[in-house]
Simulated assay, not measured.
Amino acid sequence: MVLGGFLPDTPVVSVLLILVATAVIWLGSGWLEESAEHLSAYYGLPAVVQGSIVVAIGSSFPELASVVFTALAGTFDMGVGAIVGSAIFNILVIPAVAGIFAEGEMETNRTIVYKEAQFYMVAVATLVLTFALGVIYAPVSGAHALVGQLTRPLAALPLLLYALYVFIQWQDVSDHAAERVEIPVGREWLRLLAGLALILVAVEQLVGGVESLSHTFGIPAFLAGVTIIAAATSLPDLLVSVRSARAGKSVTSLGNVLGSNTFDLLVAIPLGVLIVGTVTVDFAVAVPMFGVLTLATVLLFAIMRTDLSLTSVESYALLVAYVAFVAWVVAETVGVTHVIKGA
């Protein structure tokens, strides 16, 4: 319902609501990310951990909120679509735009390539495995054979893997020695909480606006999440990564991309299941999207490993790949292609 029923539920109002909510998400995420960055410097965290854990979780909060609200609204497919679409956006668009605006080539390192990127690939495989277990052991009666349910015990699997990820990062922190930067800690924590509150309110309205449009125009919930919600909730990730790249912090910029996606897949989706208890997933819809996500991840991994840098030509290649993905999603929506069988 648009703003609790105070505004008419029309396509024009829904579009305006989506635009305003996106702007508020951008503002709240800016507060959240800047506070997270300052607190990381205060507590002396290394650049990789700062990008892949602290800043990544902060910039991923819109995606987390979208999953929670769609799960509560009974449109979990839209939330999963937002996470997968956001992950593809993060993998292809954010490094590309950061590489274009960076001064010279974006340098990577072996930590990013061999730890962050490979762990992210494991995260993708783990979530696909979790979905498959839901189809095998909790099938939905009356539905086709590829529809199953995710339960709380199954949701614990990706959460346990993320706990391992945090443990590995914690070991890096314990081995890292850095000078602490003095800041007004109380003020930064208050600004971080204010950013979280703004994001919560804005994402709730964003989900409502997209849900209204999808009903009006007959857009499948999963595809609406993959496109509109995914792009809107990924804007904060784009902002922080470009800003880090322009400041010469390419490791933090790329670490934010991979860490944000790892958090989205291993925490955001399982958290929606934990809140609701049981959600239905369509393997026929999810797996083709995870296949695209895997291809995008392999492409980024290969580009980052080549000379351990990201050039402007490689950045434009990533953008071309994302344009091809959007074109395919549009083709699926209008019925030109039929790769997604359950959509």
Rank of each mutant, 00 (worst) to 15 (best):
A178M: 08
I18T: 12
V147K: 00
V140R: 01
Y137I: 15
D264T: 11
A143G: 05
Y120K: 05
A123M: 03
L19H: 05
V267E: 03
V292C: 10
R180S: 12
F301T: 13
E33A: 11
A178T: 08
P270D: 05
A163G: 15
Y120W: 08
V128R: 01
A324Q: 10
G272Q: 03
S29N: 00
T252Q: 13
T126G: 12
V251K: 01
L318A: 07
A102T: 08
W26Q: 12
E107S: 08
A302H: 09
D172I: 08
F89Q: 05
R110N: 14
A230D: 10
A302D: 12
Y120I: 13
Q50M: 09
S86M: 05
L308V: 08
T311L: 00
L64K: 01
P158H: 02
L235D: 01
L64G: 06
V84W: 06
D77H: 03
L310T: 08
G218R: 00
I83E: 08
L32F: 08
L238E: 07
E116W: 11
W170D: 10
V330D: 13
T278P: 01
L127E: 05
L293E: 04
G4I: 12
M289H: 09
T262Q: 00
F131C: 09
Y43G: 06
R180Q: 13
A296G: 12
L17C: 14
G218F: 06
G209M: 03
L150Y: 04
Q205V: 11
F301C: 02
L223K: 02
V68E: 04
T297E: 05
S174C: 07
A221F: 14
T337P: 04
A123Y: 04
T216I: 06
F263H: 06
P153W: 03
E107D: 07
Q50L: 12
R305D: 15
V135G: 03
M78W: 02
Y162T: 08
G85I: 14
S59W: 00
L161I: 14
V320T: 14
A155W: 02
G277A: 00
L159M: 14
A331C: 07
L92I: 05
I229G: 07
T233M: 01
S35T: 12
Y165S: 00
V207H: 06
V54E: 01
V84P: 07
G335P: 06
L193I: 13
K249N: 13
S174D: 08
G58I: 04
G209E: 04
F301D: 11
A331H: 07
A197Y: 09
M304K: 00
Q205M: 09
W31M: 14
G148F: 08
I136W: 07
Y114S: 13
V80A: 07
V298T: 10
V97L: 13
P139T: 12
N261G: 10
I94F: 00
S86N: 08
T22S: 06
P8I: 12
S66N: 07
S29L: 04
V339N: 06
R243Y: 09
W328F: 15
P95C: 07
E179C: 02
T75H: 13
E105R: 04
V2S: 10
E188W: 04
V24I: 14
S52P: 12
L319H: 03
F69C: 12
S35A: 13
A202P: 11
G208S: 15
A343H: 03
I275D: 11
I91T: 13
G142E: 13
V257F: 09
V67M: 03
V287Q: 01
